[in-house]
Write a protein that binds this DNA or RNA. Structure first.
Lengths: 339, 339
DNA sequence: ATGAAAGCGCTAACAC
DNA sequence: GTGTTAGCGCTTTCAT
């Protein structure tokens, strides 16, 4: 028989549907013997509970809605992977949506997820998003929501984010403690948050360590391979190379690699390079890039943990801010001077 | 007001709930004036339809369940990304589950998704899976299912897969037409399907092109970096190098790169390397690897298209087999001899 | 220990 | 055009 319902089981056994419902949920009302009989016939008949019906009257769906800007970015794949793992372990489903970095798609996704009556939302804002109207609605409906990586700051929601500035400061400190003082910065645009925060960290470390600031070593341009490539050429043609370059991301670093190699310079012998980057990719660089690593698994795990605890009301406070540490990983693109 | 229902709107306007329901779905029964009035109050009151309730009595959820072995593998991220895109465009939700390559998790996932009454399933089997029992149940329940990448072959389900053998043959032909005859094969294990099919293609191309087979150039080992590394060392120490090496995947290729560089050999000048690999990763190789590319986007797109057409009953035939072409991409790790 | 009645929010079938 | 009735499959009172 196909598509078996509780009432079918009840009819089969000549009992009431309610008894079946209770037995299947191991309700104390029902005797062990009855429970056994019912669960056996259920199995035999191929019964699979209709969760939709259960959700309707329990007003709980055990479903979490995720909105990510993108999935081809492997960073978010790791985040989502981790979230799904934890959610599954805790008996939640995950409905995954992608905003493609578009504000209107994001809004649509969230409205749909509310319509699906998800128990909670995990959102990484799109780059475009400036309007918080739909989130105001989520607030009003008291649906638990946790932002990750990119968040609205002035709302009654928790958020889990990286501390870019302190990550940059700490990493710079490590490099400086190693004995480096001639450090350039391929900075990306200071108009975007990422570029700004990372460069702030750079400046702060330079200042705190009393290293003279050399303006000609701060090259502000874009976030792409060509930007790193051109910055390096510019730097090299000045005839005044630093010992080491701090890059705003892995694509810029790779551009610098390329230009350095073309100029006949060896990494790390003639010039060192380190900076922000995605672990799994920079592993393939030759030599492997020394990186400041933002671990997507940590981010994802903290976000889903927080959300589920808010759903379960274990947390009353709805506005935690969790900062994920950025780790500095020594690899091959920077020469160790100490030890 | 929070959590507005159709009946709330009805009460507000002193009309019946059914009128509201019909108006909101643009049913021809209702007058334009009424529709306008209703949809305006709905908006004003912040009404969001309860899809769970709608799903319950329409027995349609507009939800598709996906089961992938893994998401940290960026191949599957691309697949899923593409599927979600297409699904969203066609007004379907996606519930994403991960089997972690475990048969029992996969089974649990599928049972849960059936419980959620998904309209269809997209499944890539785990490596462990040998038991098709749960799929027999899906068959019996007449739930549309499409396998992608890894499939059961003897079931009444469609599948979308790569044709590994012909991909290998075609790529080998390209290399041979370019004038290469001294070709080695770093083959992986012939006990797994991937290793077997790709190597079959290698043999077939060698044979068809009447190139003498040199057993000492067939190195069967594993699928990891170290395997490529050691195979290359072995090959090189024999003092009898081929012109070019065909590798079973990108990690093996990278191992070969490493060993070649250590031996002071230049790629592609002294030795060429090509083989199976993931585009986005082998882009970062130095030099970029000439690859046989399996496009995850093509795979994902064909699978979801097929599934949705089966759900919509546009397709009566439930056992299509779609073969995705593998493309050969000339890049830097093989010297062009012609043109 | 078991069951009858009512309802979750919505929609299809049928009246008026 | 609008409203009434009934039911999707399940669970939660409240009786027995």
């Amino acid at each position: 028989m196909v598509n078996v319902r509780q009432s079918d089981i009840a009819k089969e056994l000549n009992i009431s549907r309610v008894t079946v419902s209770k037995a299947l949920r191991d309700h104390p009302d029902i005797s062990q013997a009855m429970k056994k009989k019912i669960s056996e016939t259920a199995r035999k008949m191929g019964y699979i509970p209709n969760l939709i019906a259960r959700q309707l009257n329990s007003r709980r769906t055990f479903t979490i809605g995720i909105v990510v800007p993108d999935l081809e970015n492997s960073f978010f794949s790791y985040v989502v992977d981790t979230m799904i793992d934890y959610a599954t372990e805790h008996n939640y489903y995950v409905i995954l949506t992608v905003s493609r970095e578009k504000q209107n798609i994001e809004k649509q996704n969230i409205e749909n997820l509310i319509g699906m009556r998800v128990d909670g939302l995990l959102v990484c804002l799109s780059q475009e998003t400036t309007d918080n109207k739909v989130f105001k609605m989520v607030e009003k409906m008291k649906i638990p929501l946790v932002f990750f990586d990119r968040a609205f700051e002035n709302m009654r929601f928790s958020r889990v984010i990286f501390d870019d500035k302190s990550g940059a400061v700490n990493s710079m400190n490590r490099i400086i403690q190693e004995g480096y003082t001639k450090i350039a910065n391929f900075a990306g645009y200071s108009t975007t948050n990422i570029g700004k925060k990372r460069t702030e960290g750079f400046y702060e470390a330079i200042k705190k360590n009393k290293i003279p600031l050399r303006k000609e070593w701060i090259l502000e341009s874009g976030f792409e391979l060509k930007d790193g490539y051109e910055s390096f050429k510019k730097l090299n043609s000045s005839g005044n190379l630093p010992e080491i370059i701090f890059t705003v991301n892995d694509r810029v670093a790779l551009g610098a690699y390329k230009a350095a190699k073309e100029a006949g310079l060896m990494i790390p012998k003639d010039i060192g390079i380190f900076g922000y980057g995605f672990n799994e990719i920079t592993d393939f660089f030759d030599p492997q890039l020394t990186v400041i690593n933002q671990d997507p698994r940590k981010l994802g795990l903290e976000a889903i943990k927080l959300l589920i605890s808010e759903i379960d009301k274990k947390t009353k406070i709805r506005q935690s801010i969790i900062s994920i540490d950025e780790e500095f990983l020594w690899r091959k693109s920077v020469k160790r001077k100490l030890k």
